[in-house]
């Protein structure tokens, strides 16, 4: 009788279960009504089955978002796990949609599902990509804007994984500052 290794039939479990959300900007509906849960997964194999099945971010129309969040956390500031948090924000210029957007978003997803931030991965709530005419954005959301140690570790690892040059900086902003800002920019709480 042939012995089959469990490697060949057991899927590789992830540390967390994740939910992928899609937002499509329809101005006739409320913000919440435009937000849809696509699917949940908790194995490496099911992550790829979903990723390979959906459109690349660069093919989405302006006003759309993908969000990947841990199961039980909704992709909005108001969620209990997000409301004291903030985000490492990557702003892309128009040329970067072709050059970097899909690569950066996939790298972001791999950081999340692979728990790339070591023990500080527990601070991660999710990640969002916004497709916008004026410039796309990608962000990793964390739970507590006061947790300097976790936030800076996550920021350093993330910047390295995206291959952002040392001389360039990325900023971390609290959701409360983003929600109450008066101009077009939000002040950075941390920079790496």
């Amino acid at each position: 009788q042939e012995i089959v290794s469990p490697e060949s039939y057991i899927k590789h479990p992830l540390q967390n279960k994740w939910s992928l959300w899609f937002f499509k900007n329809d101005k006739t509906k409320t913000w919440q009504a435009n937000l849809r849960l696509i699917s949940k997964f908790d194995t490496v194999e099911d992550f790829w089955a979903l990723y390979n099945h959906i459109q690349l971010s660069s093919n989405l129309i302006s006003g759309c978002d993908y969000s990947l969040f841990k199961d039980g956390i909704e992709p909005m500031w108001e969620d209990e796990r997000n409301k004291r948090g903030g985000r490492w924000l990557i702003t892309l210029n128009k040329q970067q949609r072709r050059q970097d957007l899909d690569r950066f978003w996939l790298e972001t997803l791999l950081c999340l599902v692979g728990e790339a931030f070591d023990d500080y991965s527990d601070e991660v709530c999710g990640a969002v990509v916004n497709i916008r005419t004026k410039g796309d954005k990608i962000a990793i959301w964390t739970a507590d804007f006061d947790n300097r140690e976790a936030i800076t570790h996550i920021g350093r690892v993330y910047k390295e994984r995206l291959g952002i040059p040392m001389k360039m900086t990325i900023g971390y902003q609290s959701h409360s500052d983003t929600a109450t800002k008066s101009g077009s920019t939000t002040k950075n709480k941390f920079v790496v």
């Binding site: 590789h12 479990p13 992830l14 540390q15 490496v44 194999e45 099911d46 992550f47 790829w48 089955a49 990723y51 390979n52 790298e107 791999l110 599902v113 692979g114 728990e115 790339a116 070591d118 023990d119 991965s121 994984r161």
Partner: peptide
């Protein structure tokens, strides 16, 4: 401990998943 997977390990499964 945590179930951590590095990028190369994860990428190795991208097209394997479609075959199973």
């Amino acid at each position: 401990g945590k179930r951590q997977y590095n990028r190369d390990f994860l990428l190795g499964f991208q097209f394997m998943a479609a075959c199973t």
